Amino acid sequence: MRRAMRCVSVWAALLLGLAAAALTPPARADGPAPVPPPAPRAPVPAIGRAWPVGVRPPVLRGWEPPATMYGAGHRGVDLAAPPGAAVRAVAAGRVSFAGRVAGRGVVSLELTGTDLRTTYEPVSPSVKKGDEVGAGEVVGVVEPTGSHCGRAGCVHWGLLSGDTYLDPLSLLPPWLLNRGPSRLLPVLGVQLPA
C-alpha cells in the first residue's frame, strides 16, 4: 500500500511539473523578456506660479530620467541658489514631509487638485507636515551644507506622480519660463538696413 501511494505521489508530482512547464513561457535565447513600457501619462499641467528660488535662476543640471527604475540619471533639476536663499512653493499644496533625509533637509508638497508631489533639498524647513501653503509661499531656506553643487549652492527640485519622476520645469507655464527672446535669422538676398 505504501509503495502504491509513493508511486501515485511521484506521478502526481510529475504531472504537476509538466503542467507548470506548459504554463511557463519559454526562455528567450537573448535574455529575459523585455518589460513593457509604462502607459503614456497625461501631460503635466502648467500650474506653477513661482520659481522655487529667485526670479529666473540658472538651471545648473537638468532633468535626465533614468532608463530603468534604479538606473543612473538625474531625477529633478538643480537650480542655482546661495545658502540662506528663500525656497518657495511652486504651486499651492499641503506639506507631506518636512525633515531630514540622509543628513539633508527636505520639504515635500502634495500639489492641490493633482496627484503630483514636489520636493526641495537641501532646505532648512520653516513649515511642518500638514501645513497648507500657497504658490510663492516660503517653505524654508537653502542649507549651507548638503548641496552637491559645491559652495555656490543649489536647490534640487523634484516632481513626482506616485513613484514616477517627471520634469519639474513642466510645471511652469511658458510665460514664467521665458526662455529668452526669439532669434531672427537673416534672410538671404535681402539687404540689411544701414
Rank of each mutant, 00 (worst) to 15 (best):
M1C: 14
R2N: 14
R3S: 12
A4T: 05
V8R: 15
V10T: 10
V10S: 05
W11D: 08
L14V: 15
L14I: 15
L14N: 12
L15Q: 08
L15I: 11
G17I: 07
A20I: 09
L23H: 13
T24Q: 03
P25C: 08
P26K: 12
P26H: 05
A27Y: 06
R28G: 06
G31A: 07
P34I: 02
V35T: 15
P36R: 04
A39V: 14
A42Y: 02
P43W: 01
R49Q: 12
W51Q: 00
P52L: 06
P52M: 10
G54N: 03
V55G: 08
R56T: 10
V59H: 06
R61A: 05
E64D: 12
P65E: 03
P65I: 05
M69A: 15
M69K: 11
Y70Q: 13
Y70F: 15
Y70S: 10
Y70K: 01
G71S: 13
A72V: 12
H74D: 00
H74C: 04
R75T: 10
R75I: 06
G76C: 05
V77S: 01
V77K: 02
V77F: 01
A81T: 02
A81D: 03
A81C: 03
G84E: 12
A86E: 11
A86S: 11
A89N: 00
A89H: 00
V90C: 07
S96Y: 05
S96L: 13
A98W: 03
R100V: 14
V101G: 04
V101P: 04
G103S: 07
V106N: 05
V107E: 10
S108E: 06
L109H: 03
T114L: 02
R117Y: 08
T119G: 13
Y120P: 01
E121L: 05
E121K: 02
E121T: 07
S124E: 15
S124I: 14
P125M: 05
P125Y: 06
V127N: 02
K128S: 12
K129P: 03
D131C: 06
E132G: 06
G134C: 00
E137Y: 02
E137V: 13
E137T: 13
G140W: 00
V141D: 09
V141S: 09
V142M: 01
V142H: 01
V142W: 03
V142T: 03
P144D: 07
G146I: 01
S147Y: 10
V155Y: 07
H156I: 07
G158E: 00
L159K: 00
L159Q: 05
L159D: 02
S161R: 14
G162V: 10
D163Y: 14
Y165Q: 08
P168T: 04
S170N: 07
P174I: 00
P174G: 07
W175E: 15
L177R: 08
R179T: 13
L185E: 15
L188C: 12
L188R: 15
G189S: 13
G189I: 12
G189P: 01
G189H: 11
P193N: 04
P193I: 01
A194N: 14
